[in-house]
Nucleic acid binder design. Sequence first.
DNA 1: CCTATATATGAATATATGTTCACGTGTGAA
DNA 2: TTCACACGTGAACATATATTCATATATAGG
Lengths: 122, 122
Amino acid sequence: MKKQKDTCETRLTDSSAVEHVVERLSGERELAGMAEMFKALAEPTRIKIIEALSLRELCVCDLSVVLGMSQSATSHQLRLLRHLGLVRFRKAGKVCYYSLDDDHVSELLSAVREHNLHKREK
Amino acid sequence: MKKQKDTCETRLTDSSAVEHVVERLSGERELAGMAEMFKALAEPTRIKIIEALSLRELCVCDLSVVLGMSQSATSHQLRLLRHLGLVRFRKAGKVCYYSLDDDHVSELLSAVREHNLHKREK
DNA sequence: CCTATATATGAATATATGTTCACGTGTGAA
DNA sequence: TTCACACGTGAACATATATTCATATATAGG
């Protein structure tokens, strides 16, 4: 009975390399956290939100106009960013003003923006 | 006939703010490019790949062992990273060695890693 | 109290995407 | 040539997630 498994067990490649690398990888917990952070920026809609709020505080309604999408959709995305601690809000009567709560995020955006520009001219 | 639309047209909030912000947002093209970049890192699996290849060149088979997933799945993810120009490969007989083709990417990883560590201790 | 407005949110739906499965290609060895 | 292995890939499937829709909450004004 040949148990041909998916990950070829009869390895001929460098197994010490595998050990060396595995030891140095981030833990699952840490990886998940990093992925979650990147996931927050993995959508044009949310990048727009971060860009907009990095310029100035905005209420949900104005923000939805900026984004060109419904108030509901905007609100859902804001909740996501809120739970990640990327934005904060303040209530003023009926209106709810959102602003950035994480300076590093817009730096990440800038880094990728410039990186992509460089790459395009290659 | 009241045409109560989704995005409230009878705005009472700052409309000059909207203009100001809209003018300064990145273009759709640029936004899509940025999102694509972040999307590449928005998965623990791919972060692992980047981390691993930043340590040393690895063949697909060894990499799949490192990742703890099938060769096929690994190959699919590598294709994605290849198309984004994040990794390169070289063939040696049957074996195919992959390595990082973008230094900036691991810097992004480091940035987010440290950022999350700081945040956790808050 | 009644109405209108700003926002939040659960459920449903549509779409994107990661993984598996089956198979094809290319290479080295017997 | 025949076989085994490393890798790539299309299709199917499963899951995640963005948006819409309907509705709830809260607040201001009349």
